[in-house]
Simulated assay, not measured.
Amino acid sequence: MKLAVFGASGSTGVELVKQALAQGHDVTALVRDPDKMAGLVPNKDLKIEKIDLSSADTVEPHLQEKDAVISCLGSYALFGSVTLYTDSMEVIVTAMRKNNVKRLVCITSWYTTDTPLDPAPFLIRWVINPLFLGRVLTNMAQMEEFLQGCEDIDFTVVRPPMLTTGSVTDMEFNTEEGQQVHDRGGMRGMRHADVARFMLSILSSEEWMRKCVAVIAVPRK
């Protein structure tokens, strides 16, 4: 597949680009700093293009003849407003429409929405989210809501738990359509590399089309 990857120089994005190239995909990394990206993934088959997310007109040329778009864009701002997720996705979707690109896979997180029927653990709900991640999660939820209204976009929003470092594993994926995965196999977090592996694994699948899927990698039984 011909893939356009936003946020390719981030921790998940780098892993996704490496794995996508290894799988034989035609990958274009869309980044603000091409030199940085070239250092992170020194692969002659990788196409690297400098991107300006200020408007759809600047993004549209980069999505020509692409089969799918993957967004690993993320923000970890602790202070001030967070609008990266909605701002970037509105631009990306508009550019996709101009190129008739339908398939989109992007990343948010567990617990983007406080659901009383399926609440987050006490520490996350009453300490971590209000003090540290609330603004980020709110904007993630706003992006998810925006995509739900895009009837012409075949999106999948991937919701992982806390992200950790480490090389890719062969652990199996437990998934749920919701804010979290209850069968966690003793795991609390998920490696960036395994999130990337899952995102690539669902590209051609209709199982999670137009859905938000919570995922975690667990040891095989």
Rank of each mutant, 00 (worst) to 15 (best):
L3E: 09
A4L: 04
A4C: 03
A4P: 13
G7R: 04
S9R: 04
G10M: 06
S11M: 12
T12F: 05
V17Y: 08
K18H: 06
A20D: 04
A20M: 04
L21I: 01
G24R: 01
G24F: 06
D26T: 02
L30Q: 00
R32W: 00
P34N: 01
K36Q: 02
M37V: 01
M37N: 00
A38L: 01
A38K: 01
V41G: 00
N43V: 06
N43Q: 02
N43K: 02
D45P: 03
L46Q: 02
I48T: 01
I51S: 00
D52F: 00
D52T: 00
D57Y: 06
T58H: 05
Q64F: 12
E65N: 15
A68K: 13
V69S: 12
C72K: 03
G74Y: 02
G74H: 03
S75V: 06
A77V: 10
A77R: 15
F79M: 13
G80H: 12
V82C: 11
L84S: 11
L84K: 10
L84N: 10
T86W: 05
D87I: 10
S88W: 05
V91R: 02
V93L: 05
V93E: 05
T94H: 06
T94P: 07
M96W: 12
R97I: 10
R97V: 07
V101D: 04
R103Y: 03
L104S: 04
C106L: 14
T108F: 07
S109Q: 09
S109N: 12
Y111T: 01
T115P: 07
D118S: 14
P119V: 09
A120M: 03
L123N: 12
I124V: 15
R125A: 15
W126V: 13
N129I: 15
N129T: 15
L131H: 11
R135C: 11
L137M: 14
T138A: 15
M140G: 07
A141T: 11
E145M: 13
E145L: 14
F146L: 15
Q148L: 10
Q148W: 10
D152H: 00
D152F: 06
I153G: 10
R159F: 11
P161R: 02
M162G: 03
T169R: 02
T169N: 05
M171L: 14
F173R: 07
F173G: 04
N174Q: 11
E176D: 08
Q179S: 05
D183M: 10
D183T: 07
D183Y: 07
G186L: 07
M187K: 15
R188C: 06
R188M: 15
G189D: 10
R191A: 12
D194M: 04
A196N: 13
R197S: 14
R197C: 12
F198R: 12
F198C: 15
M199Y: 14
L203E: 00
M209Q: 15
C212N: 15
V213S: 04
I216D: 07
I216F: 06
V218S: 10
P219A: 02
K221N: 12
